[in-house]
Computed example of a mutant assay.
Amino acid sequence: MLRDATSDDLDLLYDMLLEAFNWDGTPRFTRAEVVADSHTGRYLGGWKRSDDFGLVATDDQGSPLGAVWARALPAGTPGYGYVADDVPELGMAVARPHHGRGVGSALLAGCLEQARAIGWRALSLSVEDGNGAARALYTRNGFVTVGRNGDSDTMLREL
């Protein structure tokens, strides 16, 4: 089941951001580091702003399985997958025990629909080299590589 992400979901979204940064299971970052870092804080600091949007996937008992969220970031303080001020950057993760069950596909499809309904022209994201499962999901859903930032590709999905 999908539901809108609310301001009450901030802790969950930080947990999912940490999961996204530690996508390969290697604990490269701690939650405290993700919360304290000024660059990563751009994605969730002050959540939920008026133009922030996202979804939480839950099981039948309402327990979270994963989340997706998007926020427009300005050129002066861009995210890793920055494309333009009028293109929100997407963040997404599924809790490790729920990988491979279609949760990510459902979250991404729902987020694309949310963005269209709100009137955004596109969504962007960043995917690290080696994260083949995420890259395949994004490619299947129409994202194309439009740039490079360090060891990650910036991908764009026109809506």
Results as ranks from 00 to 15, higher is better:
135 R>Q: 15
125 L>C: 13
121 R>M: 14
121 R>C: 09
93 A>D: 05
102 G>F: 07
129 D>W: 09
102 G>V: 05
117 A>S: 11
98 H>F: 13
108 L>T: 10
70 A>C: 10
94 V>R: 04
122 A>D: 07
66 G>S: 07
115 A>N: 07
71 R>G: 07
52 D>W: 13
125 L>I: 10
98 H>S: 14
106 A>D: 13
81 G>Y: 03
102 G>E: 10
101 R>I: 14
142 G>N: 03
73 L>R: 02
73 L>E: 01
44 L>T: 06
81 G>P: 04
126 S>F: 02
85 D>L: 07
116 R>N: 03
120 W>P: 01
80 Y>I: 15
148 R>Y: 06
89 E>A: 05
124 S>R: 02
71 R>Y: 03
140 R>L: 13
143 F>Y: 06
128 E>K: 08
126 S>A: 14
85 D>P: 03
87 V>P: 00
51 D>E: 15
95 A>I: 10
125 L>A: 06
68 V>N: 06
118 I>N: 10
140 R>G: 05
144 V>D: 15
124 S>Y: 06
70 A>E: 05
123 L>N: 01
61 Q>Y: 13
85 D>Y: 05
107 L>S: 01
115 A>W: 01
70 A>W: 00
59 D>M: 10
97 P>W: 12
58 T>E: 14
92 M>E: 05
127 V>E: 02
107 L>R: 02
60 D>Y: 05
104 G>D: 06
108 L>E: 01
52 D>Q: 10
95 A>E: 15
131 N>V: 00
113 E>T: 13
97 P>F: 07
81 G>A: 06
124 S>V: 06
48 K>G: 06
95 A>K: 14
52 D>A: 11
149 N>Q: 14
109 A>F: 08
119 G>K: 08
78 P>A: 11
87 V>T: 09
134 A>K: 07
